[in-house]
């Protein structure tokens, strides 16, 4: 599903945070990537989601090499991958209601009416309903907002889901609930997962295999 080979990426060419890293996620596989904070695993997650152009290395997504990142990637390629970020506060446009937030990718791709039912079903699956969907991010808790962000990531039925420290800010029960939603989705759609995190116990329980992020000296 995803092949990263010899990726070097970062924010200044002289000091990249990811150096020469290779990684493969097979179709339907759940891979955990374990590393301490600040080691560059979030950058790698952004590269894998076609959101950050690496300085060197190649990304092969669903059998095709990736040529463009961010807006340069064709829409159909971008939406193959769903992303959930660590901090739901920053990952949600504060002006949208949770309902609009979940349905935002549908509007962006012009499939709003087609996906309206799916948006409702997903909101239900992540446990959001009624009054909560009419609220805006500042009026809900971190846990509720992250539930909405997960529903948004699943809306376009991605074949690969990338969870970048999805549960780092959440309590045990919300963590378990969100992981259960992800696993239900994966079973139903046979999707692959790249779960990035620092919690060994969680990743071991969640993923098929867990890899240590190679720490650069």
């Amino acid at each position: 599903m995803l092949e990263l080979s010899h990726i070097t990426a970062g924010y200044t060419p002289r000091a990249p945070v990811v150096r020469d890293l290779s990684l493969t996620v097979a179709d339907g596989e759940a891979l955990g990537l374990l590393g301490p904070s600040g080691c560059g695993k979030s950058t790698l997650a952004r590269v894998a989601a076609l959101l950050h152009r690496p300085y060197a290395g190649t990304v092969v997504l669903a059998g095709e090499p990736v040529r463009g990142f961010r807006f340069r990637a064709p829409r159909a390629r971008r939406t193959l991958v769903g992303v959930v970020f660590q901090q739901p506060r920053l990952a949600a446009d504060p002006r949208l209601t949770l309902r609009a937030l979940i349905a935002d990718p549908a509007r962006a791709t012009g499939r709003f009416t087609e996906l309206a039912d799916r948006a409702d079903a997903l909101a239900d699956a992540v446990g959001l309903g009624g009054d909560l969907l009419r609220r805006r991010p500042p009026e809900v808790s971190d846990g509720q907002l992250q539930r909405a962000c997960l529903a948004r990531a699943l809306l376009l039925r991605p074949r690969l889901l990338i969870c970048d420290e999805m549960t780092a800010m959440l309590d045990a029960s919300t963590t378990a609930a969100l992981v259960a939603v992800v696993e239900d989705y994966r079973r139903e759609h046979d999707a692959a997962l790249l779960a990035v995190g620092h919690d060994r116990v969680l990743l071991n329980r969640w993923c098929d295999s867990v890899r240590e992020f190679p720490t650069t000296p």
Partner: peptide, 21 residues
């Protein structure tokens, strides 16, 4: 009890529902 059981090293099972507003 539910909160503790939700830990990945225990049952990893969420408490159903959401807390009240």
């Amino acid at each position: 009890r539910g909160l503790l059981a939700a830990l990945p090293e225990r049952d990893f099972a969420p408490i159903p529902g959401l807390p009240p507003e």
